[in-house]
Amino acid sequence: MNTRFAARLLYTMLASGTLLLAGAVRADTSTQDAIAEYREMFGDDNPAELWQARGEALWHEARGPQKANLEACDLGLGPGVIAGAYAQLPRWFADTGQVQDLETRLVTCVTSLQGIPRDDFLKVKFGDGEKKSELEALTAYVVAASRGKPLTLPLKHPAEQAAFDLGKAVFRYRAGPHDFACATCHGEPGKRIRLQELPQLNTALGAREAYTHWPAYRISQGELRSMEWRLQDCFRQQRLPQLKFGSEVAIGLTMYLAKTAEGGVLAAPGIKR
């Protein structure tokens, strides 16, 4: 190993391993700079690719009692079409009679096409180290196929409009011992919690900034995190009970955020601190 390489390797390790510890005690601007530097070092690479690759393999593999792959899965643009599919979700699906986000639609495909029981597939909804989530891998694969596509949510079906309305109302719903709502932290421009900048999610600008980069690889957790995870963890911090996966509030808030971010160009999976 030559000296130059050693220095470079050390740099890579420092940046990927200990950067956040250093960033936490510095002023906010340098933390933002350090995260930008980290992103730049990766260039087009993102550890989310590891999830995408796993998802791609799962998509094409014949599995479950029906020994079928997912190539006939209809995500709203017709069976097997994944390019651009994430940019028009959530949406209403005639076969289930429901508004579904990407994650709940993937559950429909896995259960109906492959015959895998819902509870088996959802045993690991959110990955944690050695416990890997098939749902997150498939999500990453499908999401990446919408990179560069603008979010388009016409809300033509009344159920889609109802989901949006519900999400909009939930965004302001104050409850729990701390009286928190989504709007408490995400309702004003240019605010932050500690050093974490907060996107104003009830404006197009803020919603685009956030929504177009989710799902995202969280550097601090070493995991790819989905939108369902993001919402559930926000409610945990609001001191509320646990948001149920695929519940009407989960779908409604996702619809509200996606519609508010409409026109934003997808760059997910992103990289977050």
């Binding site: 190993m1 390489f5 470079r8 390797l9 890579t12 390790m13 990927s16 391993g17 200990t18 070092m41 990766f42 690479d45 550890p47 590891l50 180290g129 550097i219 070493g222």
Partner: peptide
């Protein structure tokens, strides 16, 4: 072209680049 000894201080899902 490369031989490296690593330890526990390297991050989860490591990223490595070299020339």
């Amino acid at each position: 072209v490369l031989s490296a000894d690593w330890g526990p201080s390297v991050s989860k899902n490591p990223y490595l680049s070299f020339r």
